[in-house]
Amino acid sequence: MKLEQVMIVARKELRELATNKGALLSVLVFGGLFTITSLGSITASAGSGGSSIEWSMIYLSMFIGVFSGFTLCGTVFFREKQSGVIETLLCSPLDLRAIWLGKVVGVAIPSYLLGLLSAGIMAMLSYAALGIAAAPSLLVPFHLFIVAPAFIASAIGLVGYVQLAMGMRENRMVSMGVFILLVFGLSLSSGVVQEDSTLMGQVVVSLLVGAMVLLALSFALSKRLDKEKIITSIPD
């Protein structure tokens, strides 16, 4: 698998997503609404101060990133298969895993950036509203620049694999199932931190371990991608 091939596909996905107003708008509207909701709950629990903002940054970057990834996967993987364009791509000299990885990178970059942007906006507004001047702990940049991109990319890899490999009906059910499981995991970790904010570090490390496991799983599954499976599951 050549990196150059991966990047050709990734660049094309980025270019196509940039022109997809519908998908971008839905992601931005949802991201904006969720950011405002988080902002409201932080200012309501003003007593917990900085740690509440820190956790919100961690949670929001992941949640918005995963949600955006799931939405954009629909355009990049699902619709390309549904339209049959994928057949032509599979006839090119590209390795099947290079196609998959290129698409994952193409979706992961905007999804991660949207997650990061939401967390940044929410944090700035919260710090300003609560009048806190202290910088966030090192845990936040560690999460934002290492854990979040790994987690978002692994989630997109899994959803992308499902959308390429499965038939259209199973596709909707399984990819929705994967998304719900990821969101459930995030909500569970959020519940733990809200109970005891000193556990935030352990939760972030757990998320990193989870991201690594999911990344390994995505790569292992991508080796099992099969052209015949993809072609025979394209709808007539």
Binding site: K12, T19, G84, E87, C91
Partner: peptide, 14 residues
Amino acid sequence: VGVLMENDGLYDKL
């Protein structure tokens, strides 16, 4: 090999 199947293999948004 060049290929044109039933689908044109084109991206609508590009």
